[in-house]
Amino acid sequence: MMRILLFLATNLAVLLVASITLRLLGVESYLSDQGINFQSLLIFCFIFGMAGSMVSLFLSKWMAKRGTGTVVIETPSNATEKWLVDTVAELARDAGIKTPEVGIFPAQQSNAFATGWNKDDALVAVSAGLLNRMRPEEVRAVLAHEIGHVANGDMVTLALIQGVVNTFVMFFARVVAHLVDQFLRARSDDGAGLGFMGYFAVVIVAEIVFGIVASAIVAWFSRFREYRADASGAKLAGSGAMINALARLKAETELPDQMPDTLRAMAITKGQTRSLMEKLFASHPPLDDRIRALKEAAYRE
């Protein structure tokens, strides 16, 4: 129920922000009797495409806390929590960023994530399972990986890329629908085209097709991000510790993935990908590839 409410709240916020922005810009309908106005269409798609990503980005911490049940450590209540807060503060200082909020979420799978709309207002959280089963140096490496995400500005960059691909998916889907409509009008004796419902049916189908391609592009960047965060983690916590932490995560890939879909790209692992399609759309590279990349980088040094 909470995920449904969060989804509805996010989409209502997107519609509100986009509608107000379009009105302020004076953008009228992109369809008229004269045809399609590409400038208005592009503005329309850009506003709605970016609005969804930006609203999600600004709400990311709030949604993450509620979606995972993360409890932020305001005042450490035991030695483990104090060590966790102190370690994040040390890593953040070494990375040159403001110390993020630190939290623990109740999942038995070893996992962690970072989120937040900018590097000085972030959240780093680890699962209870990770704290229970990993050695301190491995937990520190996982935290360093997440701090790497924050320091690299990955949350903002991913939101911008998602917004851009959303824009072009919407734009080209409507161009395709317009071309189909014009083609049918030219072939019809009475000049009838798709009609209102037909037009939007074509838009939906085209958005699905273009959306699949766009998802592959976003997933490719997400996988690139993971290699970069692993390198940052190795720099902050040591290559050996980072490799051992990933090896420990690999041993748990058969456990059910308890991370919400909206946070999976920001988690340290997504589980094991097997098929070619899974690899193409996976937000994370295979753990074997990540371990191999770290070993090769350490060897070059």
Score class of each variant (00 low, 15 high):
residue 2 M to G: 01
residue 3 R to M: 11
residue 7 F to W: 11
residue 12 L to K: 09
residue 13 A to K: 07
residue 14 V to A: 08
residue 16 L to S: 05
residue 19 S to D: 08
residue 20 I to N: 09
residue 20 I to R: 11
residue 20 I to A: 13
residue 22 L to P: 01
residue 24 L to Y: 11
residue 26 G to A: 09
residue 26 G to S: 06
residue 28 E to G: 13
residue 30 Y to E: 12
residue 33 D to A: 14
residue 37 N to M: 00
residue 45 C to V: 10
residue 46 F to Y: 09
residue 47 I to G: 00
residue 47 I to R: 00
residue 47 I to C: 01
residue 48 F to P: 00
residue 54 M to E: 06
residue 55 V to C: 05
residue 65 K to E: 13
residue 68 T to A: 02
residue 69 G to Y: 11
residue 69 G to Q: 12
residue 70 T to C: 11
residue 72 V to F: 08
residue 72 V to Y: 09
residue 72 V to T: 14
residue 73 I to C: 03
residue 74 E to R: 13
residue 75 T to Y: 11
residue 77 S to F: 01
residue 80 T to G: 01
residue 84 L to N: 02
residue 86 D to Q: 14
residue 87 T to V: 08
residue 87 T to Y: 04
residue 93 R to N: 12
residue 97 I to A: 07
residue 105 F to T: 01
residue 107 A to E: 02
residue 108 Q to L: 12
residue 108 Q to C: 08
residue 111 N to H: 14
residue 112 A to T: 08
residue 112 A to H: 02
residue 114 A to K: 00
residue 115 T to F: 10
residue 116 G to C: 08
residue 117 W to I: 09
residue 118 N to W: 12
residue 119 K to A: 05
residue 121 D to L: 09
residue 121 D to T: 12
residue 122 A to F: 07
residue 123 L to F: 10
residue 125 A to H: 03
residue 126 V to H: 00
residue 127 S to Y: 06
residue 129 G to Y: 04
residue 132 N to G: 08
residue 132 N to D: 15
residue 136 P to K: 06
residue 137 E to L: 09
residue 138 E to T: 05
residue 140 R to T: 11
residue 146 E to F: 10
residue 149 H to Q: 12
residue 150 V to P: 05
residue 154 D to T: 02
residue 159 A to C: 08
residue 166 N to G: 07
residue 166 N to D: 04
residue 167 T to M: 07
residue 168 F to L: 05
residue 170 M to S: 13
residue 171 F to H: 06
residue 171 F to E: 00
residue 173 A to L: 04
residue 173 A to M: 07
residue 175 V to R: 05
residue 177 A to W: 05
residue 184 L to C: 03
residue 184 L to I: 13
residue 189 D to W: 13
residue 196 F to D: 13
residue 200 F to S: 09
residue 201 A to V: 12
residue 202 V to P: 01
residue 203 V to I: 12
residue 206 A to S: 13
residue 217 I to G: 00
residue 222 S to A: 15
residue 223 R to H: 01
residue 224 F to K: 14
residue 226 E to F: 14
residue 227 Y to E: 11
residue 228 R to M: 13
residue 229 A to F: 13
residue 234 A to L: 06
residue 234 A to R: 01
residue 235 K to W: 05
residue 236 L to P: 00
residue 238 G to Y: 08
residue 241 A to Y: 03
residue 247 A to L: 10
residue 250 K to N: 11
residue 257 D to R: 07
residue 259 M to Q: 03
residue 259 M to S: 06
residue 260 P to A: 08
residue 261 D to I: 14
residue 266 M to Y: 13
residue 266 M to A: 15
residue 268 I to F: 06
residue 268 I to A: 03
residue 269 T to R: 04
residue 269 T to Y: 04
residue 269 T to E: 04
residue 271 G to W: 11
residue 272 Q to F: 13
residue 274 R to T: 14
residue 276 L to N: 06
residue 285 P to S: 10
residue 288 D to K: 06
residue 291 I to R: 01
residue 295 K to P: 00
residue 296 E to R: 07
residue 296 E to K: 11
residue 299 Y to I: 08
residue 300 R to I: 14
residue 301 E to H: 15
